[in-house]
């Protein structure tokens, strides 16, 4: 099974670690940073697709990765400069938009952030 994980920061790293426990899962990691937390901690060697995923390019990224499932795992820490200033609003809004596409998407970031 091919799973695309969007975000290799705090939550993304944990998800990737869990996914790696099952050898039948192939993980494709998408993150705009060159060395996000998952790379820095050695969980993955490199980011597979270096892009900032938005509703604008989501379909293209999905086409490139061709996953069966997408997990959105962006955290407030990934937007550290906006912690109190709209970061949560941004992440939740973006997740909401991404789940509107005709692809199975599991957003996990907003569950970590609480209601918005």
């Amino acid at each position: 099974m091919k799973v695309m994980v969007v975000g290799a920061g705090a939550i993304g790293t944990e998800i990737i670690k869990q996914m790696h426990k099952n050898p039948r899962i192939e993980v494709i990691v998408v993150d705009p940073k060159d060395k996000p937390k998952a790379v820095a901690e050695g969980v993955i060697q490199k980011v597979d697709i270096r892009k900032h995923v938005t509703p604008l390019n989501f379909e293209e990224v999905v086409k490139e990765a061709d996953p069966e499932l997408v997990i959105i795992a962006r955290t407030i820490e990934d937007w550290e400069q906006f912690d109190n200033l709209g970061g949560a609003q941004y992440i939740i809004g973006m997740e909401r938009e991404l789940t509107k596409f005709d692809i199975p998407v599991i957003p996990v970031s907003s569950q970590m952030l609480g209601p918005c």
Partner: peptide
Amino acid sequence: SNTATVALLIPVVLGIASRAGEDKG
């Protein structure tokens, strides 16, 4: 907050624009 306003509207805007075909950029 200006930032909270923009943070709220960015996903909405990109969601609308993504339906504009070749002109979405």
